[in-house]
Design a protein around this nucleic acid. Structure first.
Lengths: 244, 244
DNA sequence: GAGATGATTTGATCTGGGTCAAATCGTGAG
DNA sequence: CTCACGATTTGACCCAGATCAAATCATCTC
């Protein structure tokens, strides 16, 4: 199911940004410091859409007509080669996606699908490009987001090339924990098969890797992860101070 | 041998940009469309340095004080984890490197070393950031370069996750050929061990992969590659129309 | 609640590619 | 030209992780 077909069927989920929704979206990092007038003109030209889960938003190769900003929900960016595909990035609320394609007016290199019901702000790419040139704060925010995305890819590629799968999993779990303020117990968001794909391994192997981490201070119950021995985990994962 | 130590020893290779060198550098894509006055002020504050081969320019974690622009030569960006390291990008003349770190004023995520004698323009990062805000053309060029770098990383990560090593090699060779205008015969730049690292494999395996490609239309003699049967090669490599 | 569909786990096996070692090739120093 | 050192190749072997198959487990539908 492609977005264009979807749009044709259910236009009711698409509407201009309502006045009462603007403050919430204006607080997103990419817009928070910019000129209010320009921000309003962006908002007036943008659409906020609600999408059901498991909907493919766009495919590789399409022209990037809109910058996408995830307001609510969860989105997966993925690539494919022949009959295989792999998850590249999980986009969390408050972040834009496919910024690089929208900026350069080039085709998407990754496809996107919703993982859960999601609300997405669609900003026309030409308007974004114009406004970026007029507003220093938006410019800076965009550049930073792009640079951040780049660094995330460098991290992922290094991870893939230099670590083996169980180490990648261990570091991923430590990173999740840190993002939650160092929580020792947290839930995986999304299915395990998704995590496997993100980490570049098969679901079978992920399952075995979780098993192996039991000896290094991890306990798993369904989607609930508990770090029972953080020292042991860090000893095994050897997180890089700059990356992880 | 670190750059700081190197700088201390051989200051004679470092000098302000000479007037006669400016036109050559002004033609680089990142500077070509910007305001001349601002460009001159950047040049006046920048250093052009010559480095011998195999010199580590900076390590992971250092603060990005300068944007680096490779004028002549060849530079490798690499990352490491524990005692292993891997080549991430080969920078060719005319391109900047570690743009993301310089823009965001964050530590380098990759280290850099020269592969051959190189001349590098060092632009102070704060000045770059300031000038970007004043000059739309420089801004656009920077953004595009950053976006391009990002897309290259997406490509590399997809390659790593979805293809096996011989396929990666095959696609790399086809891409090299295409960049040379479709030449059927060309030279590898740099050692094979470097290519192996870039493709995420061992030198031994690269050697075997070259052997395997003999059956798919490739002939190798030292660093010289000949594509003897492009159809067979493309059939084996299955290049992606958007990526490769 | 029963059945069906899909996710996860577990087990057995296979294989791409890494490791180790030795031979060979190339190249720069003298 | 010769030597020495490093790069590349080749061969033997090993291992992480993929694949295939079957068993559980979860969830959703009716």
């Amino acid at each position: 199911m492609s977005i264009s077909r979807y749009l044709g069927l259910t236009l009711n989920t698409e509407y201009d940004l309502r006045p009462e929704e603007r403050p919430e979206i204006a607080r997103l990092p990419i817009f928070s410091d910019m000129d209010e007038t320009l921000r309003d003109s962006i908002f007036s030209a943008s659409l906020l859409q609600a999408f059901p889960r498991q909907l493919v938003l766009f495919e590789v190769g399409q022209r990037a007509d809109f910058l996408h900003i995830l307001v609510d929900g969860l989105v997966e960016l993925f690539t494919s080669n022949g009959d295989r595909d792999t998850s590249m990035v999980i986009v969390t609320p408050g972040h834009s996606f496919i910024l690089a394609a929208a900026i350069t007016d080039m085709p998407y290199l990754m496809a996107a699908r919703t993982l859960s019901t999601s609300r997405i702000l669609l900003v026309p790419a030409p308007l974004l490009r114009d406004t970026i040139e007029q507003d220093g704060a938006l410019n800076r925010a965009t550049m930073h987001e792009l640079a951040w995305d780049y660094r995330e890819m460098v991290r992922a590629l290094t991870d893939m090339k230099l670590r083996q799968s169980t180490e990648r999993l261990a570091n991923h779990l430590l990173l999740q924990s840190r993002r939650l303020g160092g929580a020792d117990c947290f839930q995986l968001r999304g299915e395990k098969r998704l995590l496997a794909s993100l980490l570049g391994m098969t679901p079978e192997n992920l399952s075995r890797a979780f098993g192996a981490l039991a000896q290094h201070g991890i306990r798993v119950d369904g989607l609930t992860i508990s770090i029972t021995d953080r020292k042991a985990m860090e000893g095994f994962a050897r997180p890089d101070p700059f990356f992880d």
